[in-house]
Write a protein that binds this DNA or RNA. Structure first.
Length: 348
DNA sequence: AAGACGTGGCC
DNA sequence: TGGCCAAGTCT
């Protein structure tokens, strides 16, 4: 009786089916000695946290063409990086991206450390990303455990222990399968398997290189795994956004505090977001409430944003925020919820 | 150590 | 429409 799954079978599959991704060195090139750029591996891994490949691609291209090395990025202005990240979400990633780049530049001579523990000590790098960079960039035998790997392990072992409680056990399963040979390709192979074959719904078991050794395939339970703890339902909150235009075309914007929701991002001044938000106009003006509302769903609540607009004279001073000249204003620098409010005001 | 933290695509 | 899900981390 063979082991339940075997790294070799997966690597053979990966050699034939590896996805082509902008940040990836193909297994063929890797075999010829091509090494991935640790900066690009790290950048892609941060962007891919809880984010789809499709959403990441254009951001990855723009970051790597604008900031070629980690030292370039370390020298960037905070506001430029936050603006470039706008729309990708989880903005703490962008703040930590800069902190990490600056730590690598100042404490590691501009080179990412080829060491799991040292990587783990850097801002924004947790257990998954430390293992991913160590394995993919440096071909060290570290075990990556992301959502894909959890799903694959739950199925291979037909383990119905609910997540997140099952995480330590699934990690043990994954570690036991990690090979000493080609750990970087293997890490990418398991995640590719989870992303393309061993998918959450309708897994393509007929195409799976691990089918023969998969306990869930044998039991017919693959599609029901992994089990997960029930989610809490999202409450709905209300809010008011104030879109102020000065007669010269300038917009009144406000930089949000570094911590908390949309931390460090540019946005419209507004009320609190709650069951009954209090009016909080940022400037004395005659307000016009727009018809409709900007709707947006965050991780843990739904938001219905009322948008109020006003036109103010040159000399009027705001109590909050600062005017940004029309030619300096880029709606693309706003987080999506703020851009939705802008679109509503533009009649889009 | 649960909860905070974005967004877009899919069904 | 609304819930689920996506290469998690931080507090």
């Amino acid at each position: 009786m063979r082991e339940i799954a075997d790294a070799k079978d997966l690597l053979d599959w990966y050699d034939r089916h590896a996805r082509v991704l902008p940040w990836r060195v193909s297994p063929q090139d890797r075999a010829r000695g091509v090494r991935p750029d640790p900066y690009r591996v790290w950048l892609s891994e941060i962007m891919l946290q809880q984010t789809t490949v499709a959403a990441v691609k254009s951001y990855y291209e723009s970051f790597t063409s604008r900031w070629t090395t980690v030292s370039d990025l370390a020298a960037a202005r905070d506001e430029d990086v936050m603006a470039a990240w706008a729309g990708l979400g989880y903005y703490a990633r962008a703040r930590n991206l800069l902190k990490c780049a600056r730590a690598v530049a100042s404490e590691h001579g501009g080179q990412f450390p080829a060491d799991h523990a040292a990587l783990l000590g850097l801002p924004g790098i947790g257990p998954y990303t430390a293992a991913a960079v160590a394995a993919i960039a440096f071909d060290l035998p570290e075990t990556v455990v992301d959502g894909n790997v959890e799903r694959v392990m739950a199925r291979v072992h037909n383990d119905d222990t609910p997540l997140p409680r099952a995480k330590p056990v699934f990690t043990d399963y994954a570690r036991a399968l990690t090979p000493r040979d080609r750990p970087g390709d293997y890490a990418q192979a398991v995640m590719d398997l989870g992303a393309t074959i061993c998918t959450p719904r309708k897994p393509a078991c007929g195409l799976c290189p691990w089918r023969k050794g998969c306990a869930a395939w044998l039991a017919g339970t693959a599609a029901e795994l992994p089990k997960k703890a029930p989610k809490q339902r999202k409450p709905t909150r209300l809010g008011i956004a104030y879109l102020v235009r000065r007669v010269d075309g300038a917009w009144l914007l406000e930089r949000r505090p570094d911590s908390g929701l949309l931390g460090g991002m540019l946005g419209w001044p507004g009320s609190d977001w709650s069951e009954s938000p209090a009016e909080a106009p940022p400037i004395r003006a005659e307000w016009k409430a727009l018809n409709g509302e900007a709707r947006h769903t965050f991780t843990h609540f739904h938001l219905r944003l009322t948008v109020k607009t006003a036109l103010v004279p040159m000399e009027r001073q705001p109590q909050r925020g600062a005017f940004v000249a029309a030619e300096d204003f880029d709606p693309g620098a706003l987080p999506t919820v703020m851009r939705k409010a802008f679109d509503l005001a533009q009649g889009k």
